[in-house]
Design a protein around this nucleic acid. Sequence first.
DNA 1: TTGACGAGTAGGGAATCTCCTACGTATTTT
DNA 2: AAAATACGTAGGAGATTCCCTACTCGTCAA
Lengths: 123, 123
Amino acid sequence: MNATPVPPRTALSAPDQDRVFAALANATRREVLRLLRDDGPQPVQRLADHFAMSRPSLSEHLKVLRQAGLVSEQRAGRQRIYRLEAAPLSEVQDWLGPYERFWRAKLASLGALLDRIPHEEAQ
Amino acid sequence: MNATPVPPRTALSAPDQDRVFAALANATRREVLRLLRDDGPQPVQRLADHFAMSRPSLSEHLKVLRQAGLVSEQRAGRQRIYRLEAAPLSEVQDWLGPYERFWRAKLASLGALLDRIPHEEAQ
DNA sequence: TTGACGAGTAGGGAATCTCCTACGTATTTT
DNA sequence: AAAATACGTAGGAGATTCCCTACTCGTCAA
């Protein structure tokens, strides 16, 4: 009964939360996270292949992600391997928790409403 | 078997997601959401009581939240009652889904690591 | 050791954000 | 009808974002 199944998670400070949400508020950065998630850790050049923008601009996006704690970098020769760090996303999920009942209530009543509408096959 | 337990949820377009995440990337706006969540729908003046900033500035924050679909406004005399709209937050949760296994893996291994450290009672 | 390569930084420009004060507008009270 | 109330918008200042091109730095290959 002394085991620690889940380590303690410290809630992020407001500025840290700002940084995480701001990092996510950009389609390029979300796509980087998706690539790291689906294709695993990879160097900058391979990430850059997926974007039309200049590589230095992508470098800046990576910096924003790093400062938000969403990715980490590991040097390998002259490459830098970026890796997804999902911990801040679990903080986002924790933040969402208290709101969940609101959208569940809404979706449930909308579902009930839809059920009351006669189903028409064609328009 | 023709009932609709949950209504169809259309995924947000990238610019819409940008708007939601950007709206959340500000402590004042997150606090507004919390107030609407915990204290229910309320007029602008009552929200403004909680902030040091000018009321017009808060009005602009409310506009950002409105444009992200996170709040709705209903006029009542010369007041405008703001209400939490949690639907976009459920989109955020959906977006988080595919990342969940990453932080679960990380937290689990960290938990296991902590379990291997001898528990010391005092420093 | 010289050159090429992978990646970050510097600096700059246009747009956007976040705050302010002043003002406009609709509604309610007197 | 006039004054007060509740709120939004206009316009502006200063900071930040997001993109670019040029350049620097470290590492590997010839």
